[in-house]
């Protein structure tokens, strides 16, 4: 049996996505041509192509959209954006969907749930030091989210260390307190553009 559509609900999810995206992402222009899904380097790994996600957003299928693995497979290559005939800001929308999936706690069901963990581990270092720290990132992330991979990644890590391409201790910027204050205020301001 077909689902009964609640127009108010469908409009509100579309609005939520657009409001959480910087600038005007032109989501309402999508004409379902599939240029994005065809161009995507990780398209074959996605459960739904970006085009399908946009149709689902228009249909108000919030939970299904935020459970999708597609945004987490996005590699930010911007091919879809460069080629989209309607100038939809697809990559920006993928970032928005990731943020909303984390906010709603639905990312764990995407089947690629270590991706937010990687992002979170990365920014933990940035928030505490002001710079990224590859060794710490690799160790902490691998041990927490990908214990099996840690073993496999170890030789490469050693290779980077041996070539002087990885630091042993993180570098902290002088204005770390200033940065922390800025980020604290930013977080308090909320996530919509």
């Amino acid at each position: 049996m077909a689902e009964t559509i609640n127009p108010a609900q469908t409009a509100s999810f579309m609005d939520e996505v657009v409001a959480a995206t910087p600038g005007d992402p032109h989501l309402d222009r999508c004409l379902q041509c599939g240029t994005c899904g065809g161009s995507c380097p990780s398209g074959p790994d996605m459960d739904h192509t970006p085009r399908q996600l946009f149709a689902m957003i228009a249909a108000g299928m919030k939970e299904e959209v935020l459970r999708s693995n597609a945004p987490w497979y996005c590699v930010s290559c911007y091919y879809c954006v460069a080629r989209c005939p309607q100038e939809v800001h697809i990559t920006d929308l993928m970032y928005t969907l990731k943020q909303l999936a984390i906010k709603e706690g639905l990312y764990r069901e995407s089947g690629i749930s270590n991706a937010p963990g990687f992002s979170q581990t990365f920014i933990d270092f940035v928030e505490n030091y002001g710079r990224s720290f590859e060794l710490g990132l690799a160790a902490k992330y691998a041990l927490r989210y990908q214990p099996l991979n840690a073993v496999r990644m170890a030789p490469m890590g050693l290779g980077l260390l041996r070539r002087g391409r990885m630091a042993i201790i993180p570098k902290r910027i002088k204005g770390i307190d200033q940065l922390k204050a800025i980020l604290a205020r930013a977080k308090a301001l909320g996530g919509t553009a």
């Binding site: 959480a20 910087p22 930010s76 970032y95 928005t96 990731k98 943020q99 984390i102 991706a115 937010p116 990687f118 992002s119 979170q120 990365f122 920014i123 940035v126 002001g130 710079r131 990224s132 910027i173 002088k174 204005g175 940065l179 800025i182 980020l183 205020r185 930013a186 977080k187 301001l189 909320g190 996530g191 919509t192 553009a193």
Partner: peptide
């Protein structure tokens, strides 16, 4: 005293802090 740009990670978590960074 520049800081990290957030790479492709920060925008996945939270918008305003990502831009502030």
């Amino acid at each position: 005293d520049w800081n990290c740009c957030g790479a492709t990670e920060y925008s996945s978590i939270d918008l305003i802090p990502a831009y502030a960074l």
